[in-house]
């Protein structure tokens, strides 16, 4: 058993490795951690590179994968890539859910029955509130995509990112996702984190190393502590949660991360429920 496998088995290190497939996006959300949009630097990982990382992650003893961006489904053949990643380790793919029409919706059928879940962002049961943060027609496109994916056998989770408060809206949102075929167990919520564009818009809660899960995160620019670490502000990559620029072999950043986690005083991690 590797040191990583032991640490994951003991709960010292989270089992999931995140991959930033790309940083560009068809949306420009107000709280985006990575200042993503249609014209930003793409910072892409190729499908082959993601599969290499996944294979090394499995060999080291990690137990799950996550793919995020940017909008991963702007990458060609992302559904097929996710299916191949899911064959290596259970995988969650984050998406804004707005691109699942026509060819992309048909392509997503490859995920039916696979060990892949798509996690789609939906922030409010009120279309106006949701769309104010995520862009025009976002709500309508997402509530159309979710049942279409569920009907095709794709496992769908819903992620809600929001400022604290408005429990009544949250209750309506839960009713909505249940109606769309997504159970409560597949609905995750997190606060807005004050990084990336949220800094510019004055949103969110501050979160440092001890507030964020120590999930190894691989990007085109290096390895980071948590997917909330590989953020962009003012067009520049944030480096405060950078682990290493070296990502191959994966054991280099993995062991750096483990060293930091083991050096952290017991109980130092906080509970902002960021996941």
């Amino acid at each position: 058993m590797t040191a990583i496998a032991g640490a994951v088995a003991d709960g010292v290190l989270p089992g999931r490795v995140w991959l930033y497939s790309n940083y560009h996006c068809n949306l420009v959300c107000t709280y985006c951690l990575t200042e993503s949009g249609p014209k930003v630097d793409r910072r892409e990982l190729s499908a082959d590179r993601m599969l290499e990382v996944a294979q090394q992650a499995a060999e080291l003893g990690f137990t799950a994968l996550g793919v995020t961006g940017g909008e991963p489904f702007l990458q060609p053949d992302m559904a097929e890539t996710l299916a191949r990643l899911g064959a290596i380790l259970p995988t969650v793919g984050l998406t804004n859910g707005t691109l699942f029409t026509g060819r992309r919706l048909a392509a997503a059928e490859v995920l039916a029955g696979s060990d892949v879940a798509l996690q789609i962002s939906l922030d409010s049961a009120d279309p106006d509130v949701n769309d104010e943060a995520r862009g025009p027609d976002n709500f309508a496109r997402v509530v159309a995509a979710i049942p279409a994916l569920v009907e095709r056998g794709v496992t769908v989770r819903i992620a809600t990112t929001r400022e604290l408060g408005d429990e009544a809206d949250m209750s309506r949102l839960c009713e909505l996702h249940r109606g769309l075929g997504v159970p409560d167990s597949d609905h995750v919520m997190r606060p807005v984190i004050s990084r990336g564009r949220a800094v510019t818009t004055g949103m969110g809660v501050a979160a440092g190393m001890n507030d964020l899960p120590a999930e190894l995160t691989i990007t085109a620019d290096g390895a980071f502590w948590s997917p909330f670490g590989a953020t962009v502000h003012g067009g520049r990559l944030d480096t405060d949660l950078l682990l290493t620029r070296t990502t191959d072999p994966l054991r280099v950043p993995a062991l750096t991360l483990l060293g930091l986690v083991e050096g952290r005083p017991a109980g130092a991690d906080s509970t902002l429920n960021i996941r």
Binding site: M209, W225, R236, D238, T239, D240, L241, L242, L243, T256, L260
Partner: peptide, 13 residues
């Protein structure tokens, strides 16, 4: 190149 300061220094630095 950008010179990192205390606010932008990576964890191990």
């Amino acid at each position: 190149v950008q010179l990192l300061d205390a606010t932008t220094a990576p964890l191990t630095a």
